[in-house]
Design a protein around this nucleic acid. Structure first.
Lengths: 211, 211
DNA sequence: TAACTACTGTGAAAGTTATCACTAAATGAA
DNA sequence: TTCATTTAGTGATAACTTTCACAGTAGTTA
């Protein structure tokens, strides 16, 4: 399998295009030219057309792109045309926010089970899901397909990672404060934290101060 | 060395290095070689050294890097050696999570004021901050320095953006579902949403399925 | 002191990505 | 029908990023 055929930056932009197309659909704007869509996505039109050429021949010369059908093509290409099953590791306010978030459910990301390592949380119910002991994960996920493991735990996130990978989970969203990596290219880990993204802004502001 | 503009990917990696260094400091690992640090950050050592060369000559040949002093240099370079003032637009569970999040405060990101456009929220108190009407923003921020505007609102995020920019705010974290952009290169907007990052994983999983 | 080892910093090469500039196709007007 | 206009798709090229490979330096040993 060639996981790397699509550049990472192209993937990120395709996701932006999809989200802007969803907005355009709500606004009943259709069709749209590469020039107009690119401007709304903060890129130039040649790049947008090149990016979309990875997905296929999706436009009509002289006209532009049908918002509805381009959105559909992108959803399919990105694997967003069906639902995905998630499990979550580590109860805390962020975990609670994610479990209660109806937007994720609407978009096809469904939490199936919740794990923790701390006795005082085991057995409690969050958003209709009982918290299981992480050490019991094999028994819990035996009969459900798990696509994505979400790590919210601040303490020992690497323990959750190891456990999830041992269970054969291939895709990890790590929301703890320590970035995690795997040498295995059959495993995909996305790291995110709010301080991380705010630091990108703080760097920009610091540059500004210096001028 | 010639002063070149810092590539976006280099910036992102520098932030990763910083967070891993913070972990190493807690683990009392010091000093560390580029080889070892790179492995823990999921990059190769030449890239790590090249990235750090944007910041300065920070290592000692034959020895490696002092964890403590490299951490300090990176914090300073990234503008994380002092505090930043934030305002927030749009009350919802995500806003509430951010306002209650002590980690952000510990890392030097302080929420100073909260805004909304819906009458039923104006005057309510969240995490010790009164919600003000967005249209009154000028009066509220007249006497405080605002560094970063955080948009959590799902409805009319572009109204919050316009208003924040009109107040002279240069750095925006947009957490709504619609990505926002500005032509003005003196403005920096970071877009993030959980469905966005989960879509990166869904694309990876879809490739797997097709194998 | 000199020889040896371990590691950084960096110029050059290799590899990758973005942009340009053109071709081709669809539309609409005369 | 023909012509002008608009816009997608793409090969070539420019720009940028990563990796290689080694010179140079700090520390260590004798």
């Amino acid at each position: 399998m060639k996981v790397k055929e699509l550049p990472e930056n192209t993937l990120q932009r395709l996701i932006i295009y999809l989200r802007v197309l969803e907005y355009l659909e709500r606004e009943k704007i259709d069709p749209i030219s590469s020039e107009d869509l690119a401007r709304r996505c903060g890129v130039n039109s040649a790049q947008l057309r090149k990016d979309l050429s990875f997905v296929g021949n999706l436009g009509t010369k002289g006209v532009g792109y049908s918002v509805k059908s381009l959105k559909y093509s992108l959803k399919k290409f990105l694997g967003r045309n069906h639902e995905w099953n998630l499990i979550l590791g580590g109860i805390n306010p962020l975990a609670n926010f994610l479990l209660e978030n109806s937007q994720l459910f609407k978009e096809g990301f469904n939490f199936m089970a919740v794990f923790d390592t701390r006795d005082e949380y085991i057995g409690k119910v969050y958003s209709g899901l009982s918290v299981y002991n992480l050490s019991q994960i094999s028994y819990v996920v035996r009969n459900i397909r798990v696509d994505i493991g979400v790590i919210t735990a601040d303490e020992t996130p690497e323990l959750y990672l190891e456990t999830f990978l041992r269970e054969g989970i291939k895709a990890i969203l790590n929301l703890s404060n320590v970035p995690l990596f795997s040498e295995n290219e059959k495993i995909k880990i996305e790291n995110f934290s709010f301080p991380f993204i705010l630091t990108k802004l703080s760097y920009f502001l610091k540059l500004y101060e210096e001028k």
